[in-house]
Amino acid sequence: MIKHLLSGADLDAETATLILDTAAEMATLAGREVKKLPTLRGRTVVNLFYEDSTRTRISFEAAAKRLSADVINFSAKGSSVSKGESLKDTALTLQAMGADAVVIRHPASGAPHRLANWIDGSVVNAGDGTHEHPTQALLDAYTMRSRLGRLAGLHVAVVGDVLHSRVARSNVLLLSTLGAKVTLVGPPTLIPVDIATALAPGVQVSYDLDAVLPTADVVMMLRVQRERMADSYFPSAREYARRYGLDAPRMRRLAEHAIVMHPGPMNRGMEIAAEVADSPRSTIVEQVANGVSVRMAVLYLLLGGRGAGAAQ
């Protein structure tokens, strides 16, 4: 098993499949009266959050607690971090406390890579800048597999602000590894340069959402921040919604079985219309539930291989 989960590229098909299969086992727990496993008893998981992200932090916290780990939440607000402590000094502190795993959310791309150099424990990237968010990609893959029964051969359209999206990068990497075909869709200003060759072979780019929808098995809508307008990535929210938003008429272009995903939080009326978000095709609520199972699987597999018996 890998030691850290920093990027979707850290996962080969075998490892990714193992995580998804393990997550499926973890999901059966959710139906039980006692939802807890003793697996990580005595292990310490630190949630180190430099950005507000209640949903991701709660998801990791629930995952670690269901595995009986001790959980320390360390948020940049109200800690020494806001007094200007460096990431390295924070890392040394966590190291001295004996953190077995650190789940990090950080506004700077690559911060988890830096952290992994400075601590002995496992590092899980819970979103770094505009780089990656690998557990989001895993939960998205898990959701697709649950709904559609497979990943290999699926056509997944990832739509919106790909340039600034860590979710998109991790999804492209993981889905390509697992045999899905990815088309990135958005205005040219929000498609990063050389994307077709940068991440994985076979990635397609389209500027025309309507042309892509009929062949898509999955449409993943990315959050688009309104402030991108001010930087001239697109002229107005209205024009964005008209060209790249998923509304009810567009949804009808989809195949019968196709699903609609969104990593949240949504801008209803911008990239996704309310009637789409609330339709039976939407997996948005399932994604949240699956997030806990997938993060349990990740923590279990990263830490499980190095139990108390192999402490040296």
Partner: peptide, 8 residues
């Protein structure tokens, strides 16, 4: 290509 991959 590299900046795209690294999200920088």
């Amino acid at each position: 290509e590299v900046s795209t991959r690294l999200g920088l």
